[in-house]
Design a protein around this nucleic acid. Structure first.
Lengths: 213, 213
DNA sequence: ATCAACATACTACCGGGTATGTTGTCAATG
DNA sequence: CATTGACAACATACCCGGTAGTATGTTGAT
C-alpha cells in the first residue's frame, strides 16, 4: 500500500521521497532543510540535488506521489454499480485508511494545498503546483459527485454541497492530526478507527445508520 | 468580539498581536519573519523586540490571546442548566463562530498545537508552551464532558470518546481551512455557515435532528 | 572511457537576535 | 516656569548562524 515505486519505476528516487515525506511531516516544509532529509538518509545534499533541482520540486514530487497513491487506492471501487451511498462508504473507508497508512505523504498533500491557497509559491513553481491542485480537485470531485448522487437518491441530506464536501474531507482526513501508530497495532485496529471516522462522516452527511454495505 | 485588549490592558501590544496573528496565519510560523510582522505595521523590528524577547514568545502570546478569547466567549453558556446537549449546541456554535470571527488567532492556536505535538520547541519555550497546551486541554475538556454527559443522557451516541472529541473539534474548527470572508457578508450569513457546521457535528455525534434548542 | 550517482567544498543571502542611537513624554527640581 | 534627567517606545546598524543552491571532485558500473 505504501508503494511509491509503483507509479515511479525509479528506486533511488523512491527512497528520497519517503525520507522527504517523513521530514516534511515532522517539521513542515519551511522548517525542513534539504540537509535534514539527506541526514535522515545517511547521505548528503548532493544525492538529493542530483535527482531534484530544488526543494520545492522535491516537495511537489512527494505531493504527486501521495495523490497517485490515493487515485490508485480508490480505483477498484470508483465506478462500482449500485446506489451511490454504498460506493461512497467504500471510497471513504479507503481514503481514511490512506490517511493512516500513508500519513507522511498525505500530510505533505495537506500542506501543499495550504501553501498553494496561501500563494506561498514562486511564479515558476506556481505552474507545477497548479497541476497538482487540479489533480487534487479531480480527486475531490469524485467524492463530491458521490455524495451529490447519494443526496439525489434520498440517502443523504445536507444543505450546501460545498460545505458538505469540506466537512466530509476534514473528517476523513482527521487521522492526519491525531493518529499515531502504536507498536502492537493490527490491521483490525486500524479498520476499527476507520469505521468510527466513516460512521461520523456518514451521519454528518445525513445518512441512515449503516443500512448499506 | 475581536477584543485583544480586554484581557490585556496593553494597547501597543494589542496592535502587534493582531499583525502577528495575520502574518502567522498567512505564511505560517516558520516562514514568517519578524521583519514581515514589523513591515505590516509600518514599523521595524525594534518595536517588536522592545515588547517581546523572541519570535517564539510573540507567537506564544498570540496563542494565549486566542485561547483567552475562546474561554471568554463560551463563559456565558458554560454552566447553563438543562440537558447537556442543549449546552453543547450553544457552545459548539459559539466555538465555530470564533473560528470564523477570530480566524487569525485561532490558526495560530492550531499551529501552536501542531508545533507542540511535533516537539518543535526549545527546552526554554517548552515550559511556556506546556502551560498553553494545558489551557487548551482544559478548554477541550469542557466540550468533552458536555458530549459525555449528552451520551449518558441518551441524546448522543458514539464509541470512543477520544475519537469523538477529535472529530467534533476538527469539524467545528474546519472553517479555519476553507472560510474566507466576503465583502458583502452579514452576521446572518456567518450564522448560516455555523448552523450547517454544528448540524454536521451534532449528527456525526449521533444526536437527533435539532429537537433541543 | 564515459556517465550516473553520489560526496565535498564553497558562496550568497536571509533572518533571528543584539547593541546602540533617537525622540517624545513626564516628573522632579531650582 | 523653564530645565533637566530619566525612561518608554521605538528606529538603525550590525553580527552571525543556518540554509538553498552551485561548482567541483570521486567512484563504481557498463
Amino acid at each position: 500500500m505504501l508503494s511509491v515505486e509503483a507509479p515511479l519505476l525509479d528506486r533511488p528516487r523512491a527512497d528520497i521521497l519517503r525520507a522527504a515525506a517523513i521530514c516534511f511531516m515532522q517539521r513542515g516544509y519551511a522548517a525542513s532543510s534539504i540537509d535534514d532529509v539527506a541526514r535522515s538518509l545517511g547521505s548528503t545534499k548532493g544525492r538529493i540535488y542530483h535527482h531534484y533541482p530544488s526543494k520545492a520540486d522535491l516537495f511537489a514530487d512527494v505531493f504527486r506521489a501521495g495523490m497517485d497513491m490515493n487515485f490508485a487506492a480508490i480505483e477498484p471501487v470508483r465506478a462500482q454499480p449500485g446506489p451511490a451511498i454504498g460506493r461512497w462508504r467504500k471510497m471513504a473507508a479507503i481514503h481514511c485508511g490512506q490517511m493512516i497508512r500513508t500519513k507522511p505523504f498525505q500530510r505533505v498533500v495537506w500542506e501543499g494545498v495550504e501553501l498553494y491557497l496561501r500563494g506561498a509559491t514562486t511564479p515558476e513553481q506556481r505552474e507545477e503546483f497548479t497541476r497538482l491542485m487540479q489533480s487534487r480537485d479531480a480527486y475531490g470531485r469524485i467524492f463530491r459527485e458521490a455524495i451529490a448522487a447519494a443526496r439525489d437518491e434520498g440517502d443523504m441530506r445536507f444543505d450546501t454541497i460545498g460545505i458538505a464536501e469540506q466537512l466530509m474531507f476534514l473528517t476523513l482526513n482527521s487521522p492526519l492530526f491525531w493518529y499515531t501508530p502504536r507498536p502492537t497495532e493490527t490491521d483490525g485496529d486500524i479498520e476499527a478507527i476507520v469505521g468510527e471516522v466513516v460512521a461520523f462522516a456518514a451521519r454528518g452527511l445525513g445518512a441512515a445508520e449503516e443500512n448499506t454495505r
